[in-house]
C-alpha cells in the first residue's frame, strides 16, 4: 500500500480517534486483527500499554484506571470475551466507563471451527452481563463506531464493546 493509504487505514484512524478522546492506556491480548493498532499504541509515548495474560485482567485494570482518573481501552479477540464475563460485573456495578474493541472470529469466512462457538456467542454473552454492543460490519464503519463509543464510555459512563466484524477486516489468512 502507498503511505497515504496506510495512514488512512482503519487502525491508524482508530489510533487517532483514541488519542483525540484522551485515552492514555491500552491493554491487550494480541490478535492479528489488532496488530497494527497495538503497534501504534506501543510506539505512542502518550499511551501506556499493558500486555495481559487473559482479557479479564484488562477489565479490572480499566476500572482501576478510571478510579485514578485515566482513560483506558481494552483490545481483544472475540474468544477473549468469554474470559471476561464475571469481571465485567465490576464496571457494570460500579458504573465505570468501559471500552472494549473486539475483533471478531468465527462469524464470516472462518476456516477454524474452534473459533465459531465463542464468536457466535460474543454479542449475547456481552449483552447478558450488561455491556452495550456496537457492531461495525464494514471497514468504513469501524472508526466512527469507535469514536462514538469513546463518548458513550467516557462521557456517559457506559460499558461498551465495539465488535469489529470479520467481514470488515477480512478472514485470517495463513
Amino acid at each position: 500500500m502507498e503511505r497515504d493509504q496506510v495512514i488512512d487505514s482503519w487502525p491508524y484512524r482508530a489510533h487517532r480517534a483514541l488519542r483525540a478522546a484522551e485515552v492514555r492506556h491500552v491493554s491487550y491480548v494480541p490478535d492479528a486483527g489488532h496488530a497494527t493498532l497495538i503497534d501504534l499504541c506501543i510506539s505512542d509515548p502518550s499511551v501506556a500499554t499493558t500486555v495481559l495474560t487473559t482479557e479479564e485482567e484488562g477489565v479490572a485494570i480499566s476500572t482501576g484506571a478510571w478510579l485514578g482518573g485515566m482513560r483506558s481501552v481494552i483490545l481483544m479477540q472475540s474468544s477473549g470475551v468469554g474470559n471476561c464475563i464475571n469481571m465485567l460485573s465490576l464496571p457494570v456495578q460500579t458504573r465505570s466507563p468501559l471500552l472494549m474493541l473486539v475483533t471478531m472470529r468465527g462469524e464470516w469466512d472462518e476456516f477454524n471451527p474452534w473459533q465459531v462457538p465463542m464468536g457466535q456467542a460474543t454479542p449475547a454473552a456481552l449483552e447478558a452481563i450488561g455491556v452495550t454492543v456496537v457492531r461495525a460490519e464494514a471497514e468504513d464503519e469501524i472508526v466512527a463506531s469507535i469514536a462514538q463509543a469513546t463518548t458513550m464510555a467516557f462521557e456517559a459512563d457506559q460499558q461498551i464493546a465495539v465488535l469489529i466484524g470479520q467481514r470488515a477486516i477480512g478472514a485470517k489468512t495463513w
Partner: peptide, 13 residues
C-alpha cells in the same frame, strides 16, 4: 481475582 489488577490500574493512573 480483580483486586491486584484494579490496584495496577490506579497505580498507573
Amino acid at each position: 481475582g480483580g483486586a491486584a489488577l484494579v490496584g495496577l490500574g490506579i497505580a498507573l493512573a
